[in-house]
Design a protein around this nucleic acid. Structure first.
Length: 210
DNA sequence: GCGACAG
DNA sequence: ATCTTGTCGC
């Protein structure tokens, strides 16, 4: 197994490859949601669900179950979840143009969360959507869907707390790779018409548990 | 130093 | 994450 030190060094090595300047696609035909489910003895299930962006209909889905190769270490989340997710991605028959990841992107202690890592490895535009925010500080956004407030870490804006439903706890959006924060948030809002979490992530979450 | 810590 | 009891809001 890779050591903690080696994993951190790998993040530092790959971080310069992240593209935060590309505004990213305004519209895509296919968008994928990714999530990992956990079973008993260190078993992880990587799930990828490709949706037709216009209708949110499922176009393709793959789940791969394997032995976890890295423990859960805050800040090194990707080293646990990336292997099963990449294995699932390789089996897709419909190519997504945008990936929505469950977790952090830029909003990460070393500015290199799972979404950035997956973006660099696949070359695809990626967005990180987390359910909790332990990185940086942010004000509470207004109660209406669409409201947001910046997440600030060491003086830098690294993401947004974005309200996807009226009066419901926001999600925490950050850039992964090849997409602007504005564009990432507009995609997340469009992909979350009925629930707090974007539909691709909900579908992947469901698949990862089965 | 101690605790907290995406999932 | 997952498990699980109890509570809350509609």
């Amino acid at each position: 197994m890779m050591s903690i030190e080696e994993a951190e060094a790998e993040q530092e090595r790959l971080r310069p490859l992240v593209d935060l300047a590309d505004p990213g696609p305004e519209r895509v035909e296919y968008v994928a949601g990714l999530d990992v489910g956990y079973a008993g003895d260190d078993e992880v299930t990587g799930a990828v669900v490709v949706l037709r962006a216009a209708t949110l209909e499922i176009a393709d889905q793959v789940a791969v179950r394997q032995r976890a190769s890295f423990p859960y270490v805050p800040g090194l989340f990707a080293f646990r979840e990336l292997p099963p997710l990449l294995a699932a991605m390789e089996k897709l028959t419909v190519a997504p143009e945008l990936l929505v990841c469950d977790g952090y992107g830029l909003a990460h202690p070393r500015r290199f969360g799972l979404a950035c890592h997956l973006g660099v490895l696949t070359g695809l535009p990626t967005i990180g959507v987390a359910k909790t925010a332990f990185v940086g500080r942010h004000d509470e956004p207004a109660a209406e869907r669409g409201s947001w407030s910046p997440i600030v870490l060491d003086g830098d804006v690294v993401g947004r707390a974005l309200r996807t439903r009226d009066g419901v706890k926001p999600v925490y959006v950050s850039q992964g790779h090849r997409i602007s924060l504005d564009n990432a948030c507009s995609h997340v809002l469009r992909l979350s018409p009925g629930f707090r979490l974007p539909e691709p992530i909900r579908m992947a979450d469901r698949l990862s548990r089965s």
